[in-house]
Design a protein around this nucleic acid. Sequence first.
DNA 1: TGGCTTATACTTATCCTGAGCATAATTCAA
DNA 2: TTGAATTATGCTCAGGATAAGTATAAGCCA
Lengths: 338, 338
Amino acid sequence: MRRYDVNSESAHWDHQRSGFSNVDKKAQNTVTSMDAITADLVAVLVAVSDGNPKIMTIAHASALPSGPFQFAHRSLQMGLRAWVEAQTGRPIGYVEQLYTFADRGRTGDPDAPHRISISYLGLTREELMHHGSEAQWSSWYDYFPWEDHRAGAPALIAKTIAPKLRAWAKSEVNSALQKQRWRRAAITFGLDSHDWNEELALQRYELLYEASLIPEAVRDKGDGEPVVPGRAMTADHRRILATGIARLRAKIKYRPVVFELMPADFTLLQLQRSVEALAGRLVHKQNFRRLIEQQELVEETGAIAADTIGRPAKLFRFRQGVLAERAVIGSKLPLSRS
Amino acid sequence: MRRYDVNSESAHWDHQRSGFSNVDKKAQNTVTSMDAITADLVAVLVAVSDGNPKIMTIAHASALPSGPFQFAHRSLQMGLRAWVEAQTGRPIGYVEQLYTFADRGRTGDPDAPHRISISYLGLTREELMHHGSEAQWSSWYDYFPWEDHRAGAPALIAKTIAPKLRAWAKSEVNSALQKQRWRRAAITFGLDSHDWNEELALQRYELLYEASLIPEAVRDKGDGEPVVPGRAMTADHRRILATGIARLRAKIKYRPVVFELMPADFTLLQLQRSVEALAGRLVHKQNFRRLIEQQELVEETGAIAADTIGRPAKLFRFRQGVLAERAVIGSKLPLSRS
DNA sequence: TGGCTTATACTTATCCTGAGCATAATTCAA
DNA sequence: TTGAATTATGCTCAGGATAAGTATAAGCCA
């Protein structure tokens, strides 16, 4: 049974054996040409500005910032931090590891040496960046136009994606698998009375890749035709970005990470707009406020927002205390006392 | 501000710069002696039997199964799958990546070549294993005796851990940091009116390591005295195990992964016992059943459990359908319709 | 001033959760 | 054979969280 998970590699389910055994562990401290690999650190560095989610890109917005993990780095995360600081001139607050990829199939060349990509999600404020390098901010919806549902489901889903996926499903001869293909499409893209689930960003990308509807698939597999809009990236960077988006969308629901993207003072509407930008959908204003306040995530600064339209809003700041208080995560087990 | 997260590396917060830049990406396809590293795959392979959580270990239960990632492997996950199949004689169902570590500080030798550990969590049924190799099953509470709260908080927390952590906090001269140390101890170990949170397994291990109360810390750092019971492991394997435990404890709450550990047919009590074994705490029986049934995770087989004490229980099986239906994860955002 | 915009308070029905009571169906030992 | 022990299962009940909306406040601008 194939599984889809935010964290899953595309797991081909063949059962080939290899000579891999845990017994011969002794002689592995020497780097042989067979085992030697290189590791890249890849960053999904996120900011929000003007109510849009941005990511840092390089090479004319065609790649995520990445660089080799080097001997000088004491640890992976420090390697990444050092690199981001060199880019931005400032330390970033929040960094978490995303996923480690090593899929030769994705690079085209089957004889290529193993190259591992260790990807990270980083959150920062755009204001902290100094420009001028080849690095720039790009909206992540440039790469995933089907992910922005703030103004309703984008037209391209009904117009392009759904029909193409239906055709892709139909092209499978086995009728059970055919049904399964369409079911998967319907679930991930919210078709056929299924609700849209913003957390499935990675699954959607994987599906479009499998159906050969995006440039990366055509490039890697040599078949199909890229018909779905959205800017591609080098190597599997767009896949890594999808992983980051999915992770962040899941995380903002149970951890106060949005504040990493906010200025020190903000109104509740600004906060809401940031959340909406990340989630790609709108939230209920009054209930959003109730949620924020009841969780005691913020406190009033006393000041009032200037130069606004409509009734001026109070300014809030993040209550630093919660980071220490809240190791507590929501338990969904019906615990017993005794 | 230091953060604690299930996924965080122990992040030393110094701001050293390095020569790491994303500009010199071109010449990186050749493996130089500086950049060359080796990658190990490490598996936290979990089963439940006799109501206890087991992990597969090697080397007389002192290490997690691990082996080098080799050229023959098409992808990381396939390398791991191949390896586990060779060990168990059967494919495993559920595999997910845990974390990638590369912390030289933990190996003792500061000049050691970079060695990356890519760890995975795998779930299986003990019955599927063939024995006879150096591999064996061990209860994970042998390594983390303070994690089992099924019979109430273990005595060693109040008797040994809490006093030692208090002393560790006191040994800090800066009074603010001193307070912070104790606060952290209290939160992670459920002291001072804080509730026990079973998901903080990794944070607890990290704390004991920092406080030099376990053998690994003494081995790596050369100070302190290991006073807390619990079997140690080679390298940072116990840390990886803690990561796996934390991940699994979090995951059983929102994904139906427990069933990977169950036989085909089971009673609801058996299911409950498995969850309790993993979570390390007891759950409310009636509410647990309501939760399971309301989510339509299981269906009756029609049969009835034999050879039991008390009223015989119906047998259930996992409804395979849910894996296809439930891409849906709980949304905690107050979404709006319009 | 009236209309537009945003902020914020409050209401209402519904669902979910924690906690426990009550009863059913067995085994086992006196 | 009876009752204690043990497990299974049905049901209730209160409180809190959630979804959805109504109502009012406080600014701007034409």
